[in-house]
Amino acid sequence: MIPDKIKIEILTPGKKVLSDEVDNVMLPGLKGYFGVFPGHTPFVAALKTGEIKLGSEKDGDLFAAGSGIAEVQPDSISVLVETCENASEVDVKRAEAARDRAQSRIQEGRKSWDLGRAEAALLRAINRLKVASAG
């Protein structure tokens, strides 16, 4: 039987961000956003930096997440991401500072390894700001 709710856990290395039951979830897959409803077939997906949106009767919660991985089972989803915060918890000043710092680093254009990190940092900062303004 297909359950009508799906359990979701969002975990980061620092802490458990969320443990809840929802109607559906939207996740930022590497190849684009995808939605998960209860009864989904078992599924493992890599996630990129983006938004996680929970659907429930209440207003859907919005999260800014770093890259990670999600494991989907018919009745549960585990989302393991590097960072994750609720739209209301985003520190806008810090994200703006991080964005500016990353931008100036990219312009300086140092070693390729640093460039990759700066680009990732820039994506994270932009994502946080976007979520904060939407939330």
Partner: peptide, 21 residues
Amino acid sequence: SQYQPVDFIFEPSAKEILDEI
């Protein structure tokens, strides 16, 4: 889990997931 691991779908491929994990 009650579900068999054989049933997993990987997105993108299992190798890429492994490279991530």
